[in-house]
Design a protein around this nucleic acid. Structure first.
Lengths: 219, 219
DNA sequence: GGCGAGTACGGTACTGAGTACCAATCCTTT
DNA sequence: AAAGGATTGGTACTCAGTACCGTACTCGCC
């Protein structure tokens, strides 16, 4: 009855978080984790490609969920599509609770885990960039703008998530909404703001405006 | 006379790039590199912390240069400071020539190297974020805005660098200037303020536009 | 029930990265 | 010439990750 019915994979994850938390990442061997989970060392590597990967057990599935959400969007629903897709990630980590906090502590102190996390984040960013790149069109800088927006979304997400993990924010969903408004404010208002150049020459005003516009596009 | 006078460190880097390029990263052991450089295996690990690190030999020094350039800037010279700091990185890699191209091929095909590169990029980003965070003040979202701008700068840099590495761009400096104008265009227009430029000279409109363009390139 | 097929598991053996330690050599300083 | 610090090479060790093999369990199917 004390034998947990959880799958070997789940037991490995639980044992890994436990051991990493109390003993430290470097001081814990894969053998230790496998033994604590009551399985062989081979089984560990069958479920996780590396010792670090066990810290991000659902990463691949999350990636797939994000990709699916982005695929469901289109150019018109762009802002809400990316916001909701990023919110999926935020909700997942917030829903993890203590496990997310332990991961945060580990990542903050173990360089190899920080590297791994950064690489994971980059995968999300690539998903967003690809989706955005497919939506924005007929702009010579479309790819660059897509990458910029993708990096901004991911940065906003991580900013809010880290603040929540540090206990600096109570309602992460709300904070993320605000952060996204900061991200999208220049995008949505683009072209709405006016830069006026007053020239006292005899040139026609619209000629001057056209020149400034060209300059701002700086092509 | 065929014995190169280069330092052991330089010989290790050259041997590593050679072997990785022709034989592949995974198929090359540290022993191979050390033997090709005419030194012991221990010496390799004395100069580079890991097998991957030899691909980014000057990374730490570059980081220090960026930090120094950012430290030399202040809130007023913000745009030019970050632009010039990023340009230092761009110039370094462009100046490397073939070595940068070999690295790009390796990174594109070897996952562990891609991870390493992403982590390196993140270090630059952190430098920018910290500098920007110190400059922008009295804004409740100051940290977020600093992180957003830092990620945008790094994204713009990488966008241009990768395009140059793929041969899609001839003049990377010029392309980067343009990319930075795209990055800074929403920032400079932030707040919906209207910038009025009154020119009392008899200059032609396109001369004025040219002056604005130069100012936007901020270098 | 029996039975092959596919699957999850455990064990063993191996390669190679990274670390610790020790001895030798070189180079500087006095 | 002697002492002392720094760079190097060699050896031995731990452990992550891979390959391979034999075994147990399960699920249809006859």
């Amino acid at each position: 009855m004390s034998t947990v019915p959880a799958s070997a994979r789940d037991r490995l994850v639980a044992a890994a978080f436990d051991l990493f938390d109390v003993r430290g990442f470097d001081e814990t061997t894969v053998d230790d984790i496998a033994r604590a989970a009551g399985v062989g060392r081979t089984t560990f590597f069958r479920h996780f490609g590396s010792k670090e990967a066990v810290i991000f057990p659902e990463h691949d599935e999350l990636l797939a969920r994000i990709a699916a959400r982005l695929d469901a969007g289109d150019a018109d629903s762009r802002d809400s599509a990316v916001t909701e897709a990023a919110r999926l990630v935020l909700r997942y980590y917030v829903g993890e609770g203590d496990r997310a906090r332990i991961r945060y502590r580990l990542i903050s102190s173990v360089p190899v885990l920080k590297t791994r996390e950064i690489a994971s984040i980059r995968q999300y960013q690539s998903l967003f960039a690809r989706a955005l790149s497919g939506w924005t069109a007929d702009d010579p800088d479309a790819v660059l703008r897509a990458e910029l927006l993708a990096s901004a979304i991911v940065t906003a997400h991580n900013h809010v998530l880290r603040r929540w993990l540090r206990g600096e924010v109570d309602d992460p969903e709300d904070a993320f909404g605000h952060a996204m408004s900061v991200v999208l404010e220049p995008v949505t208002q683009a072209g709405g703001e006016t830069t006026v150049v007053v020239v006292r020459t005899g040139a026609a005003p619209d000629q001057v405006a056209a020149a400034v516009q060209r300059a701002l596009r700086s092509s």
